[in-house]
Design a protein around this nucleic acid. Structure first.
Lengths: 206, 206
DNA sequence: GCTTGAGTGGACTGTCAAGTCCAGTCGGCT
DNA sequence: AGCCGACTGGACTTGACAGTCCACTCAAGC
């Protein structure tokens, strides 16, 4: 499907994916018809089915794109996750973003995951996305461990997973109650959790 | 809609709601047709539309029923949430339940929330369900505070919200990776979070 | 300037879903 | 017994949706 693309073709394909990503996020996958994607991207049916085998195939492409979007949006903070301060900046950025969105929509990946939870290939793709996302957190914690800042026996991967659960749960509840409060509480808890696994000898600024 | 129900009518209505709750949980609301509900509940179209105005109305009834199911399933542990031990038993029960389900499906309420995140009345109903669920946690923490076991200034409601985010995030990731690990890590984090807000003077058994 | 294949437009089809309608049955009440 | 309203069965209507098809354009390479 992705072979032999001219510049024009690639642009069209991208326009479709971009529009679909927006709509899937705003309304959900099931509530978004292919026709709605066509209108939003100013393309025609034959174009969409020229680039994608079917709607599920489009969903796969959107997951890929949405993963990039999420990671790109956090790019500035994503490589500074090896200190508590860096972690806090990341948390603040996440909360800010959600506030800008008026708390609507939760996590673009998390909400798709909840909707496509069955045996579809989409779930495997989402699992990969989350694991990629988590790996940035894990890398930060691994760096902390390397520097001897974490208590002995603390698994960086487990710490990363715990933070990710707090983030996802916080985003979900934030969407439901339309307030950033749950997200803030969740991330505060996660930060404290990380802090509790640091060596007591390390000096603190807070 | 709920007025003037004979015993027979109430039974039919309940059968429909029960079947719909199962299907919505297994496949999602959008992926479940009204006809599928009819087959599963051995009823006919006119019966369903006799008791419910439309599919959205049925969704509302299912949310109500699913809330009861969730609370009923946790009933034994739900009134012992005023000690760390009771809290731990609750966590263990939740993990056990998810293991029994092979980690499929996440939270019946959480997944519906993610799917119906838009402006529908269903979202308000779900917000109510979560607040009701959270109130059991909050009551437990309030009791702890009453007994002077919590540090000064700790808000029982905030503690409850934080635990709920961990639970929801844990359930979501558990569904995605098909392992109870994220849920266990999330709940461990939440327990430690609660513990960190207790008075240091209290004796400990762990 | 012609060929070729990528790219495009949009009408069309088949399917399936939500919701309507009406002709009934059942069971309590007088 | 017989009335009445709750209850039931299922055919039917309407519309939307995914996916197909074919005639067509565009642009790069020879």
């Amino acid at each position: 499907m992705a072979d032999r693309l001219t510049a024009r073709g690639a642009a069209t394909r991208a326009r479709i994916v971009e529009a679909a990503a927006d709509l899937f996020f705003a309304r959900g996958v099931a509530e978004t018809s292919v026709d709605a994607v066509l209108v939003a991207s100013a393309t025609s049916k034959s174009q969409l089915y020229h680039y994608f085998a079917d709607k599920d195939d489009l969903v796969l492409a959107v997951i890929e794109r949405q993963t990039e979007r999420v990671l790109d949006a956090q790019e500035p903070q994503l490589h500074e996750l090896d200190t508590v301060d860096g972690l806090r900046r990341w948390c603040d950025a996440v909360v800010d973003l959600q506030r800008q969105r008026q708390c609507v929509g939760g996590c673009p990946l998390g909400s798709m995951a909840a909707e496509l939870a069955d045996a579809r290939p989409a779930r495997r793709a989402l699992a990969g996305s989350f694991s990629r996302w988590e790996s940035y957190l894990a890398a930060g914690f691994a760096a902390m461990a390397e520097r001897g800042e974490l208590r002995a026996g603390v698994e960086p991967d487990d710490l990363a997973t715990a933070v990710m659960t707090a983030l996802q749960g916080g985003l979900l509840l934030t969407d439901i109650v339309r307030s950033t409060r749950p997200l803030e509480l969740a991330l505060d808890m996660a930060l404290a959790h990380v802090d509790a696994h640091r060596c007591p000898v390390a000096e603190r600024a807070d």
